[in-house]
């Protein structure tokens, strides 16, 4: 095994071009588990800890360009206003120690359907900045996940950053696990209201081979909110609409039975989370929020 320690982003790209099988490692919270348990023996480890660019973020007009290795802890502390959904999700990642090391870039690189940052990225709208010595491309996050633990990166590409749309309305994230902390998602759900475009977007985690948006549910709710004039009326979402939205979210999932939960439970839980997060975001939109305290 080789261990490469590029000092700059350019060096990292060159190394990845030279060693396409190199496994990038930043927080190590996925890669090291696989090495410790002998599940993976990469030829080359490409350490990104010294590439400072990856630990920075820029808040732009429309988006936040979040460096691939910015730890979740920083997202929680610094980006709760711009990326509320992601910050909520970040707070549920692993443990404080894991949140100090793990990053959205790592979640994307691993592309586990259970990754906690996927639902809020899908719901907010995001693009992955994939870079190689050949150039840069922006991949819409929906297109980034290509299969269980597979993503759209070419062998010579590294994730430089994620461009995430700044919240233009309330966002929520909810995750079911069988423990009250330090738990991998049985399933998860992210919801973002986009009052600017009068749309809603969603993200489902751990209930399909890849993270997915609940497209039909989004279309239904977007249409229903419009038809009922709810964006302007200040009224609550009718229970029948919430119920149908929840049913559609559940229908968009294709979960399996595994050690963490049954497929039937996952669908059921998505339904409940969809209804609840819709209630919380809409309450917040109406200005009578009773939102969770971020201590």
């Amino acid at each position: 095994m080789d261990f490469l320690r590029p000092a700059t982003w350019e060096e990292a790209l060159a190394a990845k071009a030279e060693h396409p099988t190199a496994v990038p490692i930043a927080g190590g919270t996925d890669v090291m588990v696989e090495i410790n348990f002998d599940h993976r023996r990469p030829d080359v480890l490409l350490d990104l800890n010294r590439v400072v660019d990856l630990y920075e973020w820029e808040v732009g007009e429309e988006t936040v360009r979040l460096g691939a290795a910015v730890p979740y802890t920083r997202v929680i502390e610094a980006l709760g206003r711009e990326l509320p959904g992601l910050a909520l999700a970040a707070r549920t990642v692993g443990s404080p120690q894991i949140r100090n090391r793990g990053s959205v870039g790592g979640n994307l690189g691993a592309a586990s359907p259970a990754g906690d940052s996927h639902p809020p990225l899908l719901a907010a709208g995001a693009e992955v900045e994939a870079v190689s010595v050949r150039g840069t491309r922006l991949i819409p996050v929906e297109e980034f996940y290509t299969g269980v633990k597979r993503n759209a990166l070419a062998p010579d590409e590294l994730i430089r950053a994620v461009h995430i749309a700044k919240a233009d309305g309330p966002q929520q994230f909810s995750k079911v696990g069988t423990r009250n902390a330090m738990v991998i998602a049985v399933c998860a759900f992210g919801l973002a209201l986009h009052p600017a475009t009068r749309t809603v977007r969603t993200g489902i985690g751990s209930a399909a081979p890849t993270p997915v948006r609940a497209g039909t549910a989004e279309e239904f709710l977007t249409a229903a909110l419009e038809e009922e004039g709810l964006w302007d009326s200040g009224r609550t979402v009718p229970p029948s609409v919430a119920r149908q939205f929840a049913d559609l979210v559940a229908a968009c999932a294709s979960p399996i039975d595994d050690v963490r939960g049954s497929a039937a439970y996952r669908r059921h839980a998505l339904r409940v989370m969809a209804r609840r997060t819709l209630g919380w975001t809409w309450d917040e939109y109406l200005g009578n929020e009773r939102s969770a305290r971020c201590a």
């Binding site: 261990f3 490692i25 410790n36 480890l45 100090n100 090391r101």
Partner: peptide, 18 residues
């Protein structure tokens, strides 16, 4: 758990070279 540049981390998940 150790402090790495002041930050609490799991030493088992930090590659030695890092």
């Amino acid at each position: 758990t150790v402090r790495l540049d002041g930050v609490p981390v799991c030493a088992c998940l930090v590659a030695a070279g890092q």
